[in-house]
Amino acid sequence: MHPLEQLRDDALREIESARDEQALETARVKYLGRSGSVSAWGEQMKTLASEEKPIVGKLLNEVRSSVTAAIDLRAQQFRSQKESDALTKIDISLPGTQHEIGALHPLTQMLERSIQIFRRMGFALADGPDVEDEWHCFDALNTPPEHPARNEQDTFYLPDGRLLRTHTSTVQIRAMQAGPPPIRVIAPGAAYRRDEVDATHSAQFHQIEGLYVDKNVSVADLKGTLEFFMRELFGADTAVQFRPHYFPFTEPSLEIYVKSKALKKGEEWVEVCGCGVVHPAVFEAVNKARGDKAYDPEKWSGYAFGLGMDRLAMILFDIPDIRLFAQNDLRFLKQFA
């Protein structure tokens, strides 16, 4: 064994057994320092015979690099160890850093969910004012004066004779006045009813109105659309039932009931929507206002629906009292974050 090899083995053993960074540094100085033993061999090289020089020189290089590598490795081990030692002291059960967040009101969440579903079916949004006139709210919707369904008693009036719309169906009329068929819109918005306030009634509530007018629109199309909506909202296994009903502005008129295991209400049919085929008298009123025959009831037909958002949110989130929505107690709102 060449003395250099002996030196290397000694150095590696010493490095390996260094207990701490200080011991390692001592070893480094001892072998690689300016007057260290490996360096000393560099000096000694000068004295060697010329035929020996390349052999010993090569060996010396190998020894120096393997000792250097061993020192680096050992130093890395010490650093890792130190890092781990420092980090193991950290109590990872401490709570994470919080960032204040807010959230949308449950009714807004309900509206957004509903709007997304209808948008997937190709409905655009439409809009109309909360403060309306009697013509848009009643007359144009086939509810002339003295019609039993024209409930002025339940309507808020302004001093100038205008009123707060009692349903978003007014937007049906506005949408049809604004453009010719085909029309495919939903209109989210507020509606008002002059009614005693209790757990299920509030003076102001929220609806999504829908209107589709095209060639040959039928009850079957209406069913397809709203069944899809209900199943998207309440789950694929939701049972949807359509029952005949009466609204002045649709004929036939229907009410939708759903039953779903996902709901706390369980196996009970709950009413969620009024809908129907647009009454030809509504088209006739629109035509008269437009001064044309754009909505010829013999050429075009349509369906309309009105979804009560407060009611749907109450059913979906199992909220017992409609008044909670307007109270905005943060303890309530945080439940829907």
Partner: peptide, 29 residues
Amino acid sequence: LIEEVLRAYGVNKIQGNDRSRSTPSSGAD
């Protein structure tokens, strides 16, 4: 009269139909 037919015939016997179609977005959108 159609409503009378529908009432007696049974709404639930009518198969729902998919009439989705594209609609350009509006100012309200």
